[in-house]
Simulated assay, not measured.
Amino acid sequence: MTALDIEIRRLTAADAAIYRDIRLEALRANPEAFGSAFETESVWPVGWFAERLAGGAAMLGAFRGSELVGTLGLLKADGPKRQHKGILVGMYVRPAARRGGVGRRLLDAALDLAAQSVELVQLSVVKGNEPAHRLYQSAGFVEYGLEQRALKVDGRYYDDILMAKDPIGA
């Protein structure tokens, strides 16, 4: 699979069932990388995911044919004092689609979208996830902090590296 085989588009409520599947896969496979938990979201019906996709956040999907192989969301911060910022969330690429440029295509699409509405894009990446960290650095993100003990999974703490970039000229 190459990045050329991939179509990136915004997910809609009609994509709720396939989004739920990949989201639960991500939470199960990499619990240290997400603030939510498989145990929490697995009990939510498809309708909950449809409402989430129909809401204000933009969730992008990477498709190979009809298969959803990756996701990345862009949330716009709330309130007049924070609305200049966007936050990238929920980055996940299925193992079979990794190392083929899918993550980069998702990231580029999210940054293009961000450039239309925000001045600053932020994200967090779990310390130790070097492929993701390198991807974000290659896109111009810079570290601005470290949140120690950001998550606790099965008794183990995980730190989050905080990163940001100006989306203009992304």
Rank of each mutant, 00 (worst) to 15 (best):
G145P: 10
L60N: 00
L135F: 07
S42N: 15
S138H: 14
R99V: 00
T40L: 10
D159P: 05
L106Q: 05
A109S: 11
V153E: 09
A3K: 14
P45M: 11
L123A: 13
L74E: 00
G65K: 12
V142L: 07
G55H: 01
Q137P: 09
A26I: 14
G103R: 02
F34K: 01
V125K: 01
Y157F: 10
D112V: 09
D154H: 15
P131D: 04
K81M: 09
P95T: 07
K85W: 14
A110I: 03
G90V: 03
P131A: 02
A139W: 02
Q83K: 09
Y19W: 05
L53A: 05
Y19G: 02
A170F: 01
A37K: 04
G86K: 07
D166N: 08
G145I: 12
A77G: 07
D15H: 02
R98K: 04
K85H: 15
A33E: 00
P167A: 05
G56P: 06
K165R: 11
A57R: 04
S117T: 04
S124C: 13
Q116D: 15
Y157D: 11
V126I: 15
G145N: 05
E67V: 02
F38G: 00
F38S: 01
E67D: 13
R28E: 09
S36H: 06
A164L: 04
E67C: 12
L72R: 13
G103K: 04
L74H: 04
E143D: 14
L120Y: 10
D78Y: 09
D159N: 13
G35V: 01
A150L: 06
V153W: 10
T71G: 05
A14N: 14
Q137R: 13
I22P: 02
